[in-house]
Simulated assay, not measured.
Amino acid sequence: MNFESYLKTHLAKSNGTVLEKHINDLLNQLDIFLKHYPDVLDEKERVLLKLAIEYHDYGKLNKLFQCKLPAKYDLKPIKCKKIKDEKIPHQFYLNQVGYKLREDVRG
Results as ranks from 00 to 15, higher is better:
Lys81Phe: 14
Ile23Gln: 03
Pro77Asp: 12
Leu26His: 10
Lys35Ser: 03
Phe92Thr: 06
Lys76Asn: 11
Glu86Gln: 14
Leu94Asn: 12
Val18Glu: 02
Leu64Pro: 08
Lys100Asp: 07
Glu20Pro: 09
Leu61Ala: 03
Lys76Asp: 04
Glu86Val: 14
Asn2Gln: 11
Gln29Tyr: 11
Leu94Val: 06
Asp57Pro: 00
Arg46Asn: 08
Lys13Asp: 11
His22Gly: 00
Asp42Pro: 07
Phe92Leu: 06
Lys87Phe: 14
Ser5Phe: 05
Cys67Arg: 08
Gly16Tyr: 01
Asn28Leu: 13
Gln29Ser: 14
Glu20Val: 11
His56Asn: 00
Tyr93Thr: 02
Ile23Asp: 05
Leu75Trp: 06
Asp25Val: 03
Leu94Trp: 04
Leu51Cys: 08
Asn28Gly: 08
His36Ile: 08
Lys72Met: 06
Ile78Pro: 07
Glu54Ser: 00
Asp31Ile: 07
Asp31Phe: 06
Asn2Leu: 08
Val47Ile: 11
Tyr58Lys: 01
Lys21Ile: 01
Leu69Thr: 06
Leu30Gly: 03
Lys100Phe: 02
Asn24Tyr: 01
Tyr58Met: 00
Lys76Phe: 05
Ile88Val: 14
Glu54Pro: 00
Asp74Ile: 15
Asn62Met: 04
Gln66Ala: 04
Ser14Leu: 04
Asp42Ser: 10
Lys68Val: 11
Tyr6Trp: 12
Asp31Leu: 03
Thr17Ile: 02
Asn2Lys: 12
Asn2Cys: 12
Leu30Cys: 03
Gly107Ala: 09
Ile78Gly: 05
His36Arg: 15
Val40Cys: 03
Ser5His: 09
Lys13Thr: 14
Asp85Tyr: 12
Lys72Glu: 15
Phe92Trp: 06
Lys87Trp: 13
Gly59Ala: 06
Leu64Ile: 15
Leu34Met: 09
Pro70Met: 14
Leu27Asp: 01
Asp25Lys: 02
Ile32Asp: 10
Val18Cys: 02
Leu94Gln: 07
Asn28Gln: 14
Cys80Asn: 03
Lys79Asp: 13
Asp85Val: 14
